[in-house]
Every structure is written in C-alpha cells, then in structure tokens.
Design a protein around this nucleic acid. Structure first.
Lengths: 232, 232
DNA sequence: GCCGCAAGAAATATCTATATTATGCGATAG
DNA sequence: CTATCGCATAATATAGATATTTCTTGCGGC
C-alpha cells in the first residue's frame, strides 16, 4: 500500500521556493500570519531570509491553494477569515471526507488497519496526557491530522484525497484561529474512538455518520466562536 | 444577484504574471500544450514574450491548481493525462456539481432563470447551427461552460463553486484532449434541454439525476477514448 | 569492439540584485 | 470640501549571476 499522501510534502525542500512555500503555509495555517494581513515582500524577506523571487513564487502557489489572495498590482494578502467561509469549508470537508472514508474502508487491508490503530493510539496518549500548552495543541493537530489521514488512506482516488486534504487544512486554520476551547469541553476523544471502531468494523454507514457529526460539531464551534468574537 | 464567477477571471489582466497565468492555463486546458510536456522557460519566453519571473509565478499558481507539476530542481511539467485521472476527475465533478446544482435551484430568482435561459439558447443555436470546425468546437466549449455555470450560479457557497469550477476545467481538458466525437453521436442537446427543464421546474431531484448522467456519459466517453488511444 | 564510468561542457533552472512602474497618501490649490 | 499634483512606498519586471542537472565525449576494462 502506498503510504505517502496525495500531495507528498515529505522529504527535504529541494529549492528555496519550496522552502518558502512550506514556511508560509505553516505560518498561515497556524495563524502566525493573521487573516487579511498584507504580505509585504520586505517584511517576509527579513522574516525568512529568502529573496523576493522565491517568495513571490511561494505566494503564487498558495494563491492556487486559496490560502493567499493576489491583489492586482497591490501585493498579496493572507486569505480572509469569515464565519461564512468557515461554514462553507466545513460543509465541503464533510462531503469529501465522508466520501473518501466510504471508499477507503472497504479497501483497507491489514497495513491500513495497523496504521489506523497506531495513529489512534498516539492521539489517544496525547489527549489523555498531562501537558496543555500552545506546544501541546500544535502536537495534537499533528496527531489528529495523522489519524484522519490514516482513515482515508486506502481511498484510491488521488483527486478526492487532494481535495480532502485541502479542505482539512483550511478547516484546521479556522480551528486554530478561533482557538476553540471545545477541545476540552467536547468529548472529541470519544468521537475518535467511535470512528476507529466503525472503521475497523468496516461499517461504512456508521463511520460516515460519525465523521459528518464530528466535522459538523467542529464547524459549529468555530462559527460560534467567530460570531462571538465579532460581537465582542 | 452577483453574476461574477467564484474566481473572477474577468476584466483585464493587470499584471504580466496574471496574463501569463491566463495564457498558460488556456493553452494547457485547450491542449495546445501537451500533457506531460516539459515547460521550458526559454521556450515559453519566446512563445509569449514574457520574462522568466512572471512565467515562473504563473506556473507556480497553476501548480496550485494541479494543472502543472513542479519537479524539484528540474523545472515544470504540464499535468499528465491518464484514464485513472479522467475517471477520478469525472467522479469528483459529478459529486460537487450535483451538490452545487441542488443548492442553486431552490435559490434561483428570476434573474437566474433568465441567465439560464439565455445561455441555453446561445448554446442551442450553436449546436444546431452549421459550422463544424476547430473554431466552432472552441466556441461550443465556451457556451457550454456558460450554461453550466449559469445553472449553479445561485449556489451560495463560494467554496463549492470554486471546487466545481476547478473540476470542470480539468474535465474540459480531458474532453478536449481526447477529442471525443461523441459530441456528435450522443444527443447532448437533449441532455441540456432536460437539464434546463428540470431547473426551471425547480425539480432538484431530476436535475441532479440528469447532471450526474450527463457528466458520467462524458467521463465514460473520455475514458474509453484514452484506453483506445493507448491500445492503438 | 562494446559497455560502463567519469570528467567536462552545455543547457537549464533558480536565485539575486537592480531598474521600472504603479499605488497611496498628504499637501495644496481651487 | 473636493480635486489634483507630487512624493514616498512598495510591487512588479528585467537582466544577470549562480548552481544544478543533463548531455557528450573520452578513457579504460572486459
């Protein structure tokens, strides 16, 4: 079984533009670069110590991913942040991830099962563990991503996986930016366990039902958080 | 009602990079630049009379759209062309376009209806008209695109429309590259009329059934054409 | 003679530095 | 108060320098 992701972002960055792309993407998704913020070349040059050429290429690529906007003759912008977008992204992720999961489960072999179990346990360990800092949250995102990716890994459609991955990243950005405290109150751990069980039972209907609910809950929390922020 | 598309590609290209992006995209989708072909800077420089900087930015952006591939330190490539990809793209387009249509129809107002009717008639006129050359085919693509876009135009989700548009473009590339003659044998015109009727009747179920069949037929024709080409 | 390998040369991609051009803002005149 | 001019800032494009890959050729070894 192929274990690499659809858009293999693994391995070392061979070019400066590639490095710029990864750094920028991470900083945008993590929220280090704020939504709507102007991405001035000079500022980025000093921040990453990378020339304007590679930076512009990286931002162009990110524009293709819709993480950056191009403004005619007036530079680049971090993609904005609205409740409407959060809702749309969540709904689209729900649709594609449920479909990908539906295709993945019946095709998952024993290697797939092992990967699902492994990533689940790593996530579980972190969730039930002690530390709760900014760092831990970042680590949780990494493990959460790994688990969700493992679940759909057996889906044969590269395009579906790509789209899912893109939506997942956007959804992650919204999650991190709205700093949803629901991570603590809501029992995400149980949701993940239900997902695991349904997947291993090869119960597609159940798995899809759970994933839809899981994504919907997150979306609702995010939308609520944004609207509260706006009213504050 | 907003009549612009999700990714407004209308209006004049304000920068050279933007112009390069549009020219390249058109040439890739139309097939003027063959799948898998190496996109050498020097070659493109003379072809479009545009410097390497803007060209590289345009290709980076197209890489984000998956119309171009980036090869480590070895340049850019037109996205490859496989039966597997055609199938995946068709399936994904089927899913997102049906969903977009389902959201658009109930929300379509009279302006929407008029646009649907207008674009249909333009398409009908061209389909039943005389000329059948390379130029006419290109014009048909334009009108076909306009009609399909009009149908989903009332869908409120920008993200869904974006994804639909992306899939439509990829699907179009496959259609054009495999030069499906089915355009003539299959009765696409009738399919379009059914689509029109269902949309105006606000019959979502029917419209979705028709659009799925419509897209599936095209996909099958394309996949068949590719496999025949491979065996020839 | 033929194959594999390695060194050098050519081609090409990538990056940097510089020049050009557009935009936004503030001052000033109407 | 509005409109226009000019300057400062910043984006964009070009041209040239650098680094990498790819191709070619020549030299043993088989």
């Amino acid at each position: 079984m192929k274990t690499t992701t659809a858009d293999s972002t693994t391995g070392p960055a061979k070019t400066t533009a590639e490095r710029a792309y990864r750094l920028l993407r991470e900083d945008i998704v993590s929220g280090a670069l704020a939504p709507g913020q102007k991405l001035k070349i000079e500022m980025l040059r000093s921040r990453y110590d990378i020339g304007s050429g590679p930076l512009r290429e990286a931002m162009s690529r990110l524009a293709g991913d819709h993480l950056v906007e191009i403004l005619g003759q007036r530079g680049f912008l971090v993609a904005p942040f609205t409740a409407q977008d959060a809702r749309e992204i969540g709904d689209l992720r729900k649709m594609v991830e449920a479909e990908a999961l539906g295709q993945s489960i019946p095709l998952g072999d024993s290697t797939w099962e092992e990967r699902v179990i492994t990533t689940f346990h790593r996530l579980e360990r972190q969730e039930t563990g002690p530390a709760q800092g900014v760092e831990a949250l970042s680590e949780w995102e990494r493990l959460n991503h790994a688990f969700h990716e493992a679940l759909v890994a057996a889906c044969p459609s590269v395009w579906l996986l790509r789209t899912r991955d893109s939506m997942f990243k956007h959804h992650e950005r919204y999650r991190r930016l709205s700093r949803v405290r629901t991570v603590l109150t809501r029992d995400i751990h149980t949701e993940h366990r239900e997902l695991l069980d349904a997947a291993l039972d090869k119960d597609v209907e159940m798995a899809q039902r759970v994933i839809r609910l899981h994504i919907e809950s997150t979306t609702q929390a995010v939308v609520l958080a944004i609207e509260n922020l706006a009213n504050a």
